[in-house]
């Protein structure tokens, strides 16, 4: 993954838990201190070592940790530097997920090592939809759930995750995430 993700994890822990906790995470992960250049691609093992270490230091299950991270990524980190991109991606939660693949298409032209997941939206009712997540990586569905709730906040929409149906294969992970939505306004 790109160092951007590592930098986001770093900022999350620095902002919410302080520098000593972050130093513990880095120490525990064994990840070198030069693994945080945002536009450089690092191995997925490096990323997961950081996530596992954060999970141990914060004493949170890995899935909870990933979910918190996904929420932070889209609600607090990306808007700081990439607010314009998020604005272009959609004006509502559904529109956002409908355009997310297009955003990733665009990003792939700049970031040649980028291996983005795919999102498809199937609208059930005005307040219910299924987001299909397909990734060549495994185990990141909790991260996506954090992203979905974070995007909901962006559009002032309360999201409830009604069901998650995940399957793994050699090709990666596929999850159908059933959500219900309610406008906070």
């Amino acid at each position: 993954m790109y160092g951007l993700i590592h930098a986001a994890l770093r900022d999350l822990i620095l902002e919410d838990h302080g520098v000593e906790t972050w130093n513990q995470v880095v120490l525990q992960s064994g990840v070198p201190s030069n693994s945080f250049l945002t536009m450089r691609s690092y191995s997925d093992e490096t990323t997961m070592a950081l996530v596992d270490a954060a999970s141990q230091v914060l004493m949170l299950p890995t899935n909870d940790c990933l979910q918190v991270f996904g929420h932070y990524w889209v609600a607090r980190f990306a808007p700081k530097e990439y607010g314009g991109l998020l604005d272009h991606t959609g004006g509502s939660l559904i529109e956002f997920f409908q355009n997310l693949d297009a955003l990733h298409d665009r990003l792939s032209t700049s970031f040649t090592e980028f291996k983005p997941p795919s999102f498809k939206v199937k609208i059930n009712t005005a307040n219910s939809a299924v987001i299909k997540y397909v990734s060549s990586r495994k185990g990141l569905t909790p991260f996506v759930i954090g992203i979905i709730t974070g995007i909901g906040e962006r559009f002032d929409t309360a999201i409830h995750i009604d069901a998650v149906d995940s399957s793994n294969s050699d090709q990666g992970e596929v999850s159908d995430i059933l959500i219900s939505m309610a406008s906070n306004g």
């Binding site: 945002t38 536009m39 530097e81 272009h88 297009a102 665009r106 700049s110 970031f111």
Partner: peptide, 28 residues
């Protein structure tokens, strides 16, 4: 403006993304 407002092959958006990334790297 939305991504759908631009033709798929239009490079304006790509250039915009690129500039944002460049700016991010400069900030970093």
């Amino acid at each position: 403006l939305h991504l759908g407002d631009f033709p798929k092959l239009d490079s304006q958006m790509d250039r915009d993304f690129h500039l944002i990334s460049q700016q991010s790297m400069v900030n970093e």
